[in-house]
């Protein structure tokens, strides 16, 4: 799980205007699928995270909350519950390394070491100093028959080796 901030920020964030023009139609369509606005939270947050550079800032959080008529603490509660959301800047490339049993049996621990070294960080969940990578250790990604599995920017890579992971990460800008 990513680290989280416990104390409320000193000054309340200024809510981002949400949804932005580009997302307006998609968001409204999502809301229309459900009997409550709250139910649209997860799909709308997915769109928002993609649109706003891979993470949900306090401002976006407040904007989404206003749009869906829920409290910002509710949104924060979701962001910290679901592993795919980021509440901190996520680097230009997000690297997920599966850590669960099958992948671990097939060498995931080495992949994590490689990914962290490439990113130049000592633990998962923090952006690399150059802003290039965010390495996250994830639980089973459902690709166990082709383990070990890694996702880079939402795209799955399978039967990954330390060498192939280095190549994949080198190819990231």
């Amino acid at each position: 799980m990513s680290a989280f901030e416990a104390s409320a920020p000193a000054a309340p964030p200024v809510p981002a205007s949400f949804p932005p023009k580009e997302l307006r139609q998609a968001c409204d369509e999502i809301v229309a699928r459900y009997p409550t606005r709250m139910a649209a939270c997860l799909p709308v947050l997915h769109l928002a995270q993609k649109h706003f550079g891979g993470w949900i800032s306090p401002e976006v959080e407040a904007g989404v909350a206003a749009y869906l008529e829920v409290s910002d603490s509710h949104i924060r509660g979701l962001l910290t519950f679901y592993a795919m959301f980021n509440t901190r800047p996520s680097g230009r490339h997000e690297v997920w390394v599966c850590r669960t049993l099958t992948c671990w049996l097939r060498g995931a621990a080495g992949l994590r070491r490689t990914a962290l070294a490439k990113a130049g960080v000592d633990r998962c969940g923090v952006e690399s100093p150059d802003g290039r990578f965010l390495v996250k250790d994830m639980e089973c990604l459902g690709l166990c028959e082709v383990a070990p599995a890694v996702f880079i920017d939402g795209a799955p890579h399978t039967e990954v080796t330390t060498e192939s992971l280095e190549q994949l990460m080198d190819a990231c800008e």
């Binding site: 799980m1 989280f4 416990a6 409320a8 920020p9 000193a10 309340p12 964030p13 306090p58 959080e61 407040a62 829920v70 409290s71 910002d72 603490s73 509710h74 924060r76 509660g77 910290t80 519950f81």
Partner: peptide
């Protein structure tokens, strides 16, 4: 008024407050 929510999960679950403070 929904100022509070649970945050995190597992043994890192805590109560958080709205960022309005």
């Amino acid at each position: 008024t929904n100022e509070l929510a649970m945050s995190g999960r597992g043994d890192h679950e805590i109560v958080i407050m709205t960022s309005k403070g």
